[in-house]
Amino acid sequence: MVQRGSKVRILRPESYWFQDVGTVASVDQSGIKYPVIVRFEKVNYSGINTNNFAEDELVEVEA
């Protein structure tokens, strides 16, 4: 279970941040499909630095 402030590695192959490390900004408990919002240092092609992920697409590298 990841929690706010954890450092996580992204396992979603189609993601711009695949294999990159980001910080968990928040975790939604309402039961949505992609409840974990992760914030990154670098921006993607659209200038965005956050994205939603499912918990099984993340691996915690640092608490």
Score class of each variant (00 low, 15 high):
residue 36 V to P: 00
residue 60 E to Y: 10
residue 24 V to G: 01
residue 14 E to W: 13
residue 19 Q to F: 08
residue 14 E to L: 09
residue 42 K to A: 06
residue 50 T to G: 02
residue 62 E to G: 11
residue 49 N to L: 05
residue 6 S to T: 12
residue 12 R to C: 07
residue 16 Y to K: 02
residue 30 S to H: 07
residue 25 A to S: 10
residue 22 G to H: 02
residue 39 R to K: 12
residue 4 R to V: 15
residue 31 G to P: 07
residue 54 A to T: 05
residue 57 E to L: 02
residue 13 P to D: 03
residue 35 P to S: 10
residue 51 N to D: 15
residue 12 R to M: 04
residue 11 L to N: 04
residue 3 Q to V: 11
residue 45 Y to I: 12
residue 11 L to S: 03
residue 40 F to Q: 00
residue 38 V to P: 01
residue 46 S to R: 11
residue 47 G to Q: 04
residue 55 E to Q: 13
residue 44 N to L: 05
residue 29 Q to A: 11
residue 42 K to N: 10
residue 62 E to R: 11
residue 32 I to Q: 10
residue 25 A to H: 11
residue 32 I to F: 07
residue 63 A to K: 11
residue 34 Y to D: 03
residue 59 V to A: 11
residue 20 D to R: 08
residue 44 N to E: 04
residue 16 Y to V: 04
residue 15 S to C: 09
residue 5 G to P: 02
residue 13 P to S: 09
residue 39 R to D: 04
residue 48 I to S: 14
residue 15 S to R: 02
residue 40 F to S: 00
residue 12 R to F: 05
residue 17 W to A: 00
residue 3 Q to K: 14
residue 18 F to S: 04
residue 15 S to V: 04
residue 32 I to G: 14
residue 5 G to F: 03
residue 40 F to I: 02
residue 29 Q to D: 12
residue 32 I to M: 10
residue 5 G to Q: 03
residue 22 G to R: 01
residue 48 I to K: 12
residue 22 G to F: 07
residue 35 P to Q: 08
residue 60 E to H: 09
residue 7 K to D: 03
residue 50 T to R: 05
residue 42 K to G: 05
residue 63 A to E: 12
residue 22 G to P: 03
residue 45 Y to H: 15
residue 56 D to T: 09
residue 23 T to K: 05
residue 19 Q to A: 07
residue 18 F to D: 00
residue 41 E to T: 11
residue 58 L to Y: 03
residue 35 P to A: 09
residue 55 E to F: 15
residue 25 A to K: 09
residue 47 G to E: 04
residue 30 S to Q: 07
residue 40 F to N: 00
residue 33 K to I: 07
residue 33 K to R: 13
residue 26 S to W: 14
residue 27 V to T: 05
residue 16 Y to H: 05
residue 15 S to W: 03
residue 5 G to T: 03
residue 52 N to P: 07
residue 53 F to L: 01
residue 1 M to D: 07
residue 18 F to C: 06
residue 11 L to V: 05
residue 6 S to N: 06
residue 49 N to H: 07
residue 46 S to Y: 14
residue 40 F to W: 00
residue 21 V to Y: 06
residue 15 S to Q: 03
residue 44 N to I: 04
residue 41 E to M: 08
residue 23 T to H: 04
residue 38 V to N: 00
residue 51 N to K: 05
residue 31 G to W: 08
residue 13 P to R: 13
residue 35 P to F: 13
residue 37 I to D: 02
residue 55 E to K: 09
residue 37 I to P: 00
residue 59 V to N: 06
residue 25 A to I: 15
residue 7 K to G: 02
residue 12 R to E: 01
residue 12 R to Y: 03
residue 15 S to H: 04
residue 46 S to A: 15
residue 31 G to S: 08
residue 24 V to R: 00
residue 54 A to D: 08
residue 37 I to T: 15
residue 2 V to D: 04
residue 17 W to P: 00
residue 12 R to W: 07
residue 13 P to C: 11
residue 39 R to F: 12
residue 5 G to L: 04
residue 57 E to R: 01
residue 3 Q to W: 04
residue 51 N to E: 15
residue 16 Y to M: 02
residue 10 I to N: 02
residue 27 V to G: 02
residue 45 Y to E: 15
residue 62 E to T: 12
residue 36 V to L: 04
residue 20 D to F: 11
residue 14 E to K: 08
residue 52 N to F: 08
residue 27 V to C: 07
residue 25 A to D: 14
residue 2 V to T: 05
residue 38 V to I: 03
residue 57 E to Q: 02
residue 10 I to Y: 04
residue 8 V to N: 01
residue 25 A to Y: 10
residue 12 R to L: 05
residue 8 V to F: 00
residue 34 Y to L: 07
residue 50 T to M: 11
residue 49 N to D: 10
residue 41 E to F: 08
residue 23 T to Y: 09
residue 23 T to E: 10
residue 34 Y to P: 02
residue 42 K to C: 13
residue 14 E to D: 14
residue 17 W to Y: 03
residue 25 A to E: 15
residue 60 E to W: 09
residue 45 Y to G: 14
residue 28 D to S: 10
residue 3 Q to E: 07
residue 38 V to A: 00
residue 43 V to K: 14
residue 10 I to F: 04
residue 43 V to Q: 10
residue 63 A to I: 11
residue 27 V to H: 04
residue 21 V to E: 04
residue 57 E to T: 03
residue 11 L to I: 09
residue 34 Y to I: 01
residue 36 V to F: 13
residue 37 I to C: 15
residue 51 N to G: 15
residue 47 G to P: 03
residue 39 R to W: 13
residue 40 F to Y: 01
residue 57 E to D: 05
residue 44 N to Q: 06
residue 9 R to T: 04
residue 28 D to P: 04
residue 44 N to A: 06
residue 13 P to N: 06
residue 26 S to L: 09
residue 49 N to V: 05
residue 25 A to V: 15
residue 1 M to H: 14
residue 21 V to S: 02
residue 43 V to R: 13
residue 9 R to V: 07
residue 49 N to Q: 07
residue 54 A to G: 08
residue 36 V to I: 15
residue 53 F to H: 01
residue 6 S to K: 08
residue 16 Y to L: 02
residue 49 N to R: 08
residue 63 A to M: 12
residue 8 V to E: 00
residue 54 A to C: 08
residue 46 S to V: 10
residue 8 V to P: 02
residue 35 P to I: 12
residue 50 T to K: 06
residue 7 K to E: 03
residue 22 G to Y: 07
residue 38 V to Y: 00
residue 13 P to K: 14
residue 14 E to Y: 12
residue 58 L to V: 11
residue 42 K to R: 14
residue 53 F to R: 00
residue 29 Q to E: 10
residue 57 E to N: 01
residue 1 M to K: 15
residue 60 E to I: 15
residue 20 D to N: 09
residue 56 D to I: 08
residue 9 R to S: 03
residue 1 M to Q: 13
residue 2 V to G: 03
residue 42 K to F: 08
residue 53 F to C: 05
residue 5 G to V: 03
residue 46 S to G: 09
residue 27 V to I: 14
residue 8 V to I: 02
residue 36 V to Y: 14
residue 58 L to I: 12
residue 45 Y to N: 15
residue 20 D to G: 05
residue 4 R to N: 06
residue 54 A to S: 10
residue 8 V to W: 00
residue 47 G to H: 04
residue 29 Q to V: 11
residue 59 V to S: 08
residue 46 S to P: 03
residue 27 V to R: 05
residue 6 S to V: 09
residue 5 G to R: 06
residue 6 S to A: 13
residue 35 P to R: 11
residue 27 V to K: 04
residue 28 D to I: 09
residue 44 N to S: 08
residue 31 G to I: 10
residue 3 Q to Y: 05
residue 46 S to N: 14
residue 50 T to S: 10
residue 18 F to H: 05
residue 38 V to K: 01
residue 19 Q to H: 09
residue 58 L to D: 02
residue 62 E to P: 12
residue 17 W to L: 02
residue 59 V to G: 07
residue 8 V to R: 02
residue 34 Y to A: 05
residue 26 S to D: 14
residue 34 Y to G: 03
residue 54 A to M: 08
residue 33 K to V: 07
residue 37 I to H: 11
residue 52 N to T: 07
residue 42 K to L: 07
residue 39 R to Q: 13
residue 32 I to S: 13
residue 57 E to H: 00
residue 2 V to H: 07
residue 56 D to F: 12
residue 10 I to R: 05
residue 35 P to T: 09
residue 15 S to I: 04
residue 53 F to Y: 06
residue 16 Y to F: 15
residue 9 R to Y: 05
residue 33 K to C: 10
residue 39 R to Y: 12
residue 3 Q to H: 11
residue 27 V to L: 07
residue 34 Y to E: 05
residue 43 V to L: 10
residue 28 D to R: 07
residue 57 E to G: 03
residue 25 A to R: 06
residue 15 S to T: 03
residue 8 V to G: 02
residue 4 R to D: 03
